[in-house]
Simulated assay, not measured.
Amino acid sequence: MLCVFNGDVMVLSPSWTTYKPQSQLAGHKAIVIHTKQEDEWRLTPSLVEQVVMENKLSPHRLLIMCNPDNPTGTSYQAHHLNQLSEVFRKHNIIVLSDEIYARLSFEGKHESIAKFYPEGTILSTGISKWASAGGWRLGYHIYPDKLSEMRKAVASGASHTYSCAPAPVQHAALWLYKWTDEVQDYVLHERRILHAVALYTFRELTSVGVKVVMSTAGYYMFPNFEILRPALNARGITTGNQMCDAIMNEASVALMAGGPAFLRPVDDLTVRLCYINFDGGKAMQASRKRGTEGPLDDDFVVEHCRTLMEAIQALKKWVETQLDSERE
């Protein structure tokens, strides 16, 4: 899609690691819009207005957004999308909405910008996340009638890159999209487990002063360890990558620095934390045994998601050690 698009491309910070490189490989100079933690890492109408005002944009404009988001885990509610749709419409901005995590919304109430801005939204999604089909990649775009010429151009360009999805994946996708009771039950327990793990992770990290926006879907969050900056500076640690190296070496927890991979500044102390380091099959069996009434508690996480729990506790202890060293 980026290869056939002729115009300006905008991406968010933080954002998934490949949006900007893909734009550059397609010959675009991606314009980065920096979202804020106080806005729960969401794009706002004022930020859109600002980027339009500060840049000499071509008449053709494309913005890539991920909802629910990777790496932050944040989502957009109806009122957010309604306000954004007005500014997108005003400035003739096409939106590529990556909604690959939509079915993993903890509350099962995902809202799509396509509902509010149908004429200018390209919806992108697939089966790899919600159906636990990592590696079995089958994705698709949905184009509005107004962008039918772009759809034709994308289909033509894609035909020179690949033929079709493998036959076994096509059959699996057809079965999944029948949305049978079995598939719905799987997704229900999947969301329930991820929600419990996200809450546990959020509570444990915020209890020691780490700033975290609570995830609303998927399996990522974006903690900010700014509270440790004085202690880390004293150790000569001034970048996110250096901090992640220290955490790996001293606590055996692997994290990805927010900058530069996720388009945050290099000295930013944000990280992407992926909270699925546990046996999902066993957790799924345990969730089904408990029935579907009510949420899962911390005891469930401790018992059935133990490797993840131990990692979060190790990370929490590491934070406490840095704070203690600063006080000394």
Rank of each mutant, 00 (worst) to 15 (best):
Q24I: 02
E119D: 10
E204M: 13
S287C: 11
K152H: 12
S215Y: 00
E250W: 01
L176P: 00
L104Y: 04
S287V: 02
H195Q: 09
P14W: 08
Y143K: 02
E250R: 03
C66F: 06
K146N: 10
T216A: 13
T121G: 04
F88V: 01
Q37L: 14
P59H: 12
C305I: 01
S97A: 15
H171P: 00
E182I: 14
I247D: 04
G134C: 09
R203Q: 13
K129P: 00
A283C: 08
L57K: 15
A311K: 13
H34N: 14
I237L: 05
H80E: 02
H160L: 11
K20D: 01
F262G: 05
S215L: 06
M150H: 06
V87K: 09
A158R: 08
I64A: 04
I100D: 05
Y101W: 15
F222Q: 03
E326S: 07
G108T: 06
V87M: 10
D39M: 06
E226Q: 13
Q50C: 03
V169I: 14
L273S: 03
D185E: 15
S128W: 10
I93D: 07
T292W: 10
Q77W: 00
G139C: 12
S23H: 02
A261L: 14
S75I: 09
G280L: 05
A114E: 08
I33Y: 02
K178A: 10
S163H: 10
L174I: 02
T238C: 00
V302Y: 10
K115N: 11
Y200W: 12
S97D: 15
S75V: 15
S112V: 06
N55W: 07
M248Q: 15
D8E: 07
V9F: 06
K20L: 09
D185K: 13
V208S: 07
A114M: 07
S15D: 12
F278G: 02
A198Y: 05
T180D: 07
Q285L: 11
V271E: 03
A198P: 12
V197G: 02
N70R: 07
Y117D: 01
T44L: 01
N82I: 03
R235G: 04
G120E: 04
R151N: 07
T161F: 10
G259W: 07
T18S: 08
S112R: 04
I193Q: 08
N6I: 09
R272Q: 13
S97M: 06
L138D: 09
W318D: 03
N92C: 07
P21A: 11
P168C: 08
